[in-house]
Simulated scan of single mutants.
Amino acid sequence: MARLRLDPTRQQALSVSVATGAYGLSFGALSVAAGLDVWQTMALSLLVFSGGSQFAFVGVLGAGGSAAAAVATSTFLGVRNGFYGVALADVLRPVRGIRLAWGAQVTIDESTAVALAQPHDDPEARRAGFWWTGVGVFVLWNAITVLGALLGERIGDPADWGLDAAAGAAFLGLVWPRLASRRAQAVAGISAVVALALTPVLPAGVPILVAALVGVLAGWRPSAPTEVPE
């Protein structure tokens, strides 16, 4: 019986898809525990489809924050996906129409990372990395989210199972691989300290927004001045 053999790019894409999709179990359970029903949880994964933004949304709701704070926090974290489109412009060309809209939906941390990890002079490998990862994560994330939501309806208080801390742990798991440089680690540390310091004095969700703003300011670097030839 012949065995299906995948090239390294597709193997990497599938590995990332399985690892990321597994977090959907925690998200589904936490979403129901935060007050959303199964259908709302499914819609959030299908339409938002950004793990960090989704965990932030249900985390704010679960902590007693307002819907406005939850949406603002989720949106702030989701803005980064728009910047990925700039880096992926050459990868997605000449995609148009429905395929372009689908590409925009699956432009996430993982699909961007796998695509850009391929050799710059191999556009086919970059496209394969993007599409296999993006679609793979989308399918597994949404399928496992449903399982988590159904599980969440039956387990009762999530604190009894340790799921009250799962949002933070899962979010850290998604963010940790991006903290490869000392600068990124320093910015993350500063933002975490700010969020922890403000948590006792500000409404739920607001410390995250302030910490995100501080992170943006701390991580910003002015462009080097361009020399004008004489």
Rank of each mutant, 00 (worst) to 15 (best):
M1G: 05
A2N: 12
R10A: 15
Q11M: 09
Q12A: 11
A13M: 05
S15Y: 07
V16L: 01
S17I: 02
S17L: 12
V18S: 06
A22M: 06
Y23P: 01
G24T: 05
S26E: 04
V32M: 03
G35Y: 06
L36V: 02
T41V: 09
T41G: 08
A43D: 00
S45Q: 09
L46Y: 07
L47V: 14
V48A: 02
S50N: 12
G52K: 05
Q54K: 04
F55C: 07
F55K: 03
G59F: 06
G62F: 10
G64Q: 01
G64E: 12
S66G: 02
A68T: 08
S74I: 00
T75M: 14
L77V: 15
L77I: 14
G82C: 00
F83T: 01
G85N: 14
A87E: 02
D90I: 06
V91N: 01
R93E: 09
P94S: 00
P94G: 10
V95I: 08
R96P: 02
G97L: 09
R99W: 13
A101Y: 11
W102K: 03
W102R: 09
G103L: 11
A104I: 13
A104G: 07
V106G: 01
T107A: 11
D109K: 09
E110M: 03
A113L: 11
A113G: 02
V114S: 13
V114R: 04
L116H: 07
Q118G: 08
Q118H: 08
H120L: 14
H120Q: 00
D121C: 04
D122W: 13
E124H: 14
E124K: 11
R127C: 04
F130G: 06
W132H: 12
W132Q: 08
T133W: 06
V137F: 06
L140V: 15
T145A: 12
G148L: 03
L150C: 01
E153Y: 05
E153G: 07
E153Q: 15
E153F: 00
E153V: 07
D157C: 04
D157M: 08
D157I: 03
A159P: 07
W161P: 00
G162P: 07
A165N: 02
A167S: 12
G168S: 00
A169W: 14
L172A: 06
L172S: 00
G173V: 12
W176F: 07
L179C: 11
A180W: 00
A186T: 13
A188G: 11
G189W: 02
A195D: 00
A197T: 07
P200R: 01
P200L: 12
V201T: 05
A204L: 14
V206K: 09
P207Y: 11
V210H: 04
V210G: 10
V210W: 13
L213F: 03
L213D: 09
L217T: 12
A218E: 15
G219A: 15
S223F: 12
P225L: 05
T226A: 12
E227K: 14
V228L: 07
P229T: 13
P229D: 01
